[in-house]
Design a protein around this nucleic acid. Structure first.
Lengths: 214, 214
DNA sequence: CAGTTAAATTGACACTGTTAACTTAACAGT
DNA sequence: ACTGTTAAGTTAACAGTGTCAATTTAACTG
C-alpha cells in the first residue's frame, strides 16, 4: 500500500534498508545463499519491490560492496595521513589493515576480489577511480610511488605499478587462501597471523634494497 | 532404453563421458553456467541419469577437479625428478608450472582453490593426501624441506610448513587476482608474465639467505 | 514364454531471478 | 466532491535450477 510520493530521503532510506537486510544475509550466509526473496522477507516487502530500487541482484550486491569498499578505503586512508611513519612502515601498516579487513569481512572480500564480475558492470561503479580517498588501489600505488622516490626498492625495479600489484597479490594470496581453504584439513595450516606476517616481511625483504638508504 | 548389465568398464566409461561433457561446459562457460540439465543434454542422456553415477552436482564437480588435480600433481612431479636443478631452481620451476596450470585452466583453478567448499566434502576426496605423486602441496612441502636442509632459507625461518604456505600464497595471489580481476580496467594491470616472475623473484629473495651457501 | 531387475526416463517439488499486469492510495485540477 | 493521474507496491507467472519418487523399458535368467 503506497504511502505516496517519497522524498529522495525516504527513497534513500528504503534503499539502505534493503542493503542492510542484504548485508546481514550476505555476511552470515555468503553470497550464493542470498536470494532476492529472502532479502525481501527480511525487509517485509515483496520481492519485486527490490527491483524498484535496484536493476537486478548483481546491481544490489555491487552497490553493497561499493559502499563497503569506500569504508575500507577511508579506513586505509587514515594510515596515510599518519606522518610519524616512514614509507616502508606505512606500506606495512597498509598490508596489516588490508588483511584485517579481508579476514573480518570474508564475504565482502570474496565478492569484491575473488569473484569474476560479469563484464557489463564496467564503469557502473560509483567509486572514483584514482581518487586516493575512495580507491584503495590508488592509495597503495601512491604509497609505493612515495617509497620509490625514496629509493627503498631494489635498483632493478622501475615499474611502480608492477611493484604495487605484486605487493597486493602477496597479501591477497594469504587472505584468499585463508578464506576459501581454511576449513580444509588437507593442509596443516599455520596460524593466519604468522602467515600474514611472514608474507609481509618476505615481500618487503624481497622488494627493498639489501642496505636501505635511510 | 537400458542396454542391460553394464560391465564395470562400461560404467566407468559413461562416468567419464559425463565428466567430459561437464569439463567442456565448465572450461568454456565457468562453473555457475553449468547445469545438470545442460550436461545431460550434451551426453544425450536425461538429467536424472547423472544421479546414477554421481551423488549430486557437487560430487560431480569434485570428481572432475580431483581428476584434473592429479594431472597437475603428476605434471609437477616431473620437475622433482629432474636432478639437474638445485633446490631453489626446482622451487622456481614448480612455481612456473603451477601458475601455468592455473592460468590455462582458470575454471578448474577457481573451483579448486578459490571457492569455499561445503564442509561435507571433507574426506570424500580420493586424492591421497601426503602422497607426493597425487598431492601437489605435499610435493611443495617436500621441496621446501629439501631446500631447508640445504640451509638456503634465512636463519630466522624454522617452520617448513609456514614457508611452504607463504610460497604458495604468493603465487596463488598473482594467479587468483588475474583470474578474477583481469577484465577489470580499474587497475592498470601489468603483463601477467611479469607479475608471476616478479612474485617468484621476490619470494625467493625474501625467503632465502642473502649470501646463499651454495 | 514369464519373471526379474538394472538402466533409464517421466514428472513433479521447491527453489531461483525476473517481469508484465494489476491494485492501491495519495495527490492535482476542476 | 468528483475525477484523472501516477507513484508505490503486490500478484501471478515464466523459465530456469537441483533433485528425487515413481515409472517404464529392455535385456537377461529360469
Amino acid at each position: 500500500m503506497p504511502r505516496r510520493v517519497k522524498t529522495p530521503e525516504q527513497r534513500q532510506h528504503l534503499k539502505m534498508l534493503i542493503l542492510d537486510a542484504a548485508r546481514q544475509l550476505f555476511v552470515e550466509r555468503g553470497i550464493e545463499a542470498v536470494s532476492m526473496r529472502e532479502i525481501a522477507k527480511r525487509t517485509a516487502y515483496s520481492p519485486t519491490t527490490i527491483y524498484l530500487h535496484f536493476v537486478d541482484k548483481n546491481d544490489l550486491l555491487q552497490t553493497l560492496c561499493d559502499h563497503d569498499f569506500r569504508i575500507l578505503s577511508k579506513d586505509l586512508q587514515s594510515i596515510h595521513t599518519d606522518a610519524s611513519q616512514d614509507a616502508v612502515e606505512q606500506l606495512q601498516a597498509l598490508c596489516r589493515a588490508y588483511s584485517r579487513y579481508a579476514l573480518t569481512y570474508p564475504n565482502h572480500y570474496r565478492f569484491m576480489f575473488m569473484t569474476p564480475k560479469p563484464v557489463t558492470s564496467k564503469d557502473k561503479s560509483k567509486v572514483h577511480h584514482g581518487n586516493v580517498e575512495q580507491d584503495a588501489y590508488a592509495l597503495l600505488r601512491f604509497m609505493v610511488k612515495q617509497a620509490f622516490e625514496q629509493q627503498v626498492f631494489r635498483p632493478e625495479l622501475h615499474n611502480i605499478e608492477l611493484i604495487a600489484q605484486t605487493l597486493w597479490a602477496g597479501i591477497h594470496g594469504v587472505c584468499a587462501l585463508q578464506i576459501s581453504m581454511a576449513d580444509d584439513d588437507w593442509v596443516d595450516w599455520q596460524p593466519i597471523e604468522q602467515r600474514v606476517t611472514l608474507m609481509q616481511d618476505t615481500m618487503i625483504q624481497g622488494l627493498t634494497r639489501p642496505h636501505p638508504a635511510h
